[in-house]
Design a protein around this nucleic acid. Structure first.
Lengths: 330, 330
DNA sequence: GATAGGGTCGCAATCGATTCCAGAATCGAC
DNA sequence: GTCGATTCTGGAATCGATTGCGACCCTATC
């Protein structure tokens, strides 16, 4: 920049004003500076700008596992929205470890990111919550209920209605023993459980003891399915609360040689290509994952543009998609 | 930092020396500073550090589509490796648009990232290549051959052997008309084509005109499959050159009601959960995607640590996994 | 007791920008 | 011709750190 200023025979402040579109600059000066700028191919140092302007135009996104198609799509949506607004995205994996969430939040604060998009590994991890409560960088949570007076925007999905619809359909098909395989103790899990319960209760039927919580992984999906299917009075239908869990479920079902839709009915949360293409196609509680990412980014950007804007909570819909994987009870 | 210095009654330079582990610092001074540091909960500003040290501890990764499971896993591997080395990762999507590659590279250079990990959308996009040639930030390319005197490290996969093995197997099963559905004109596509050709030629058979190039998307996969299957003399086996293409292929096959492994044989590059769990399971040319990401990150880190280190090219293996989706010709 | 030398510490410049403030230049009006 | 108002421009402080260099103190040696 000094080089540009010297070469153009003007002060650095003038160069700065031209480049940042300041109004107080004469046409001749603008002309002169612009000429030297692209004569030298000068590009301003965003690092120095960030330091001085106290804004990095950077947002960090922390998720449990980028390789999970759900998150991959959320990331895609968020990245597009952020890019359009001129922001760059730092991405980090927590590997579902709450401590790593905290470490990342600390790190990104030191990097002076303008905002945080978080899919926390736990809702009640004290160090993390403490950190978030103390910070004044805007935060958007993805499908998490964090208590303790934390003020943050939230983007959540209406899992409850979706799973309720799924359960109602299975009940209507005559199923009474419906297994539900869930991830960790967080909002989506609670909502899905509630959705199942809703459906049973609206029919005045007792909810059978076939709900298994664990962690959002294929391994747990498989073990849970095995556990349920090994029981004396096994479920006639399974609902998987996540695409990774479905993969495990399906592995177990395939190994047992069960015919989906006949020997056992199957439904899952979160569509992936496999759910659509499997034979028979697998019923799903679908949602628009990219829209989740876009909405989260938008909520954050709104707060970045307007300091006084209060945090909001947005609930996005889910839709139950019936498919042949759900058949009448055998 | 000034606050810490004042409160401890020492100079800022001393605080800096203590925190950065400089040797010229007495134990009593270290004690004194450390005490005030965690009394005030002081955390250094990484932005200012980066400006002064001329190193941001940041690496940018540009891919065509994060939602593609292949990239999602590469990203995972790279992120883990970078994080372990203390680096943060900026992630950007090019949406397979070469211009966006160039824009991102420019942007990240202005952000003074220490290195670039690139899965370019095109190998011969002049602005991009020009940019890379001019820059002196270390670059690692993912499975791309870029000419024009560009010096960069490369991580590539041995697609050729994998597809050759697949083709040989199909030929041994009696197939003669094998369709190959490919992505854009880049290294993996060329290699896969060569693999198929190798296999045919080693048997002394002419390669049939059943190779379709396009773009790495489910839509193209579907259209290509439709095109091939509509021909007068359609292929008896299909090889898909990528998991997204497979999704499209499979959609077309399912719609036509073809029985995989009987009416038509099917193989794909790049395993996803679906290939393993489908009934019948789908044969794949498998590779270790996370290892690709890890290796790329490692190559970059090596060059960041040692300025003089020359760029390297690493070729990672693929394995052909035979599965019932490949059956004898009907 | 004077001096050399090693170990610490503080001052101030620097990284590359932005922005406040004051002063110069321009112009028109009297 | 002078003054005042207006518009631009340049100087210098600032953002929050790092680091070269000189000053200081203390100890050991003659």
């Amino acid at each position: 920049m000094r080089e540009v200023a010297d070469r153009a025979g003007v002060a650095m402040s003038s160069v700065s004003r031209v480049l940042s579109g300041h109004p107080d600059v004469s046409p001749v000066m603008r002309e002169r500076v612009m000429a030297t700028v692209d004569e030298l191919g000068y590009q301003p140092d965003l690092l120095a700008q960030s330091l001085r302007r106290r804004a990095t135009l950077t947002v960090a996104l922390v998720v449990g596992d980028i390789a999970n198609p759900l998150f991959a799509e959320i990331v895609t949506g968020a990245e597009r929205e952020l890019r359009a607004a001129g922001y760059s995205m730092l991405l980090a994996n927590s590997d579902r470890a709450p401590d790593r969430d905290a470490a990342h939040i600390r790190l990104f604060q030191q990097r002076r990111v303008d905002g945080l998009l978080l899919s926390l590994a736990a809702e009640d991890h004290e160090p993390t919550v403490e950190l978030l409560r103390a910070t004044d960088t805007p935060v958007v949570l993805l499908d998490r209920d964090v208590d303790g007076g934390l003020v943050a925007s939230v983007v959540q999905s209406d899992h409850r209605s979706g799973v309720r619809a799924a359960t109602e359909e299975l009940l209507a098909l005559g199923h009474r023993r419906i297994g539900l395989i869930l991830g960790g103790p967080m909002r989506p899990t609670r909502e899905r459980r509630a959705g199942l319960t809703d459906a049973y209760e609206s029919r005045g039927i007792d909810v059978p003891d076939l709900i298994l919580e664990g962690v959002l992984s294929a391994e747990h999906g498989r073990e849970a399915a095995r556990d349920l299917l090994n029981r004396e009075d096994p479920p006639t239908a399974l609902i998987s609360g996540g695409n990774q869990l479905l993969v495990g479920c399906l592995a177990e079902i395939v190994e047992r040689g069960l015919r989906i839709g006949r020997d056992i009915s199957l439904a899952s949360c979160d569509a992936i290509p496999m759910t659509d293409l499997y034979q028979p196609p697998i019923a799903v509680v679908r949602r628009d994952n990219r829209e989740i990412g876009r909405t989260a980014a938008r909520l954050l950007l709104d707060r970045l543009r307007d300091d006084a804007r209060p945090p909001e909570t947005v609930t996005l819909p889910t839709t139950w998609v019936r498919r042949p994987s759900c058949g009448p009870v055998g």
